[in-house]
């Protein structure tokens, strides 16, 4: 990892932490406050790609573990990892990696804006919603003994908000790739 990659990841971690500190933003059309930290995780993957985005989220988990109150609501410390919802937190890491991996492969500079936004949306959906919620539900179900199907029922309430965040992450990532492209591009095109 070059020094630039390290700095980009660390700056992104600072952004994710900041998104947890600022007051939740209300969206105009639904009365649900958006705590933006999981949005930050999806953005890490879509803006920086798998490796640097994953490192940014890993750094966030390190900050939590070493006792800094960096999660939304001032949470932090090892107790967070002992919580029954720790699966979602650790899932952030895999969410960012999967989102980044898919973004690098789906999104091409030559595509139209709509194509890029859709590709980012699918990547954020796969990582930030499918992977993160799957890990969260599995851990919650196993650790509490309520079983995975019942944990999934409790999880459903949080899915619409995260789908919306995936959409915001996709639109933001598309704007960033136009203004300041950082995402590594992979795929057949280079060959």
């Amino acid at each position: 990892m070059t020094t630039r990659d390290l700095v980009l990841a660390a700056l992104f971690t600072a952004i994710i932490v900041a998104l947890g500190v600022v007051p939740p933003v209300m969206l105009g059309f639904i009365p649900v406050p958006i705590t933006a930290q999981s949005l930050g995780v999806m953005l890490a993957g879509t803006v920086l790609g798998a490796k640097r985005g994953g490192f940014a989220v890993l750094l966030l988990l390190v900050l939590v573990a070493i006792g800094l109150p960096v999660l939304s609501g001032g949470r932090g410390g090892l107790a967070v990892f002992a919580s029954p919802t720790a699966g979602y937190l650790v899932g952030f890491l895999f969410a960012a990696i999967v989102t980044g991996f898919l973004s690098e492969r789906f999104v091409k500079r030559s595509q139209s804006g709509l194509m890029q936004t859709s590709a980012f949306f699918l990547a954020a959906l796969a990582g930030g919603v499918v992977v993160d919620h799957a890990l969260g539900v599995i851990y919650l179900g196993l650790v509490t003994g309520i079983g995975i199907p019942k944990a999934f029922i409790g999880d459903l309430a949080f899915i619409p908000g995260d789908v919306l965040k995936a959409l915001i992450a996709a639109l933001a990532a598309r704007a960033v790739i136009v203004g300041y492209p950082l995402l590594p591009e992979r795929g057949a095109e280079r060959a």
């Binding site: 700056l11 900041a18 953005l43 915001i168 933001a172 960033v176 300041y180 950082l182």
Partner: peptide, 13 residues
């Protein structure tokens, strides 16, 4: 969220 996130990301990175 969107109009804050984009300038925040670009300016910081």
């Amino acid at each position: 969220p969107l109009t804050i996130a984009v300038p925040l990301l670009i300016l910081t990175l």
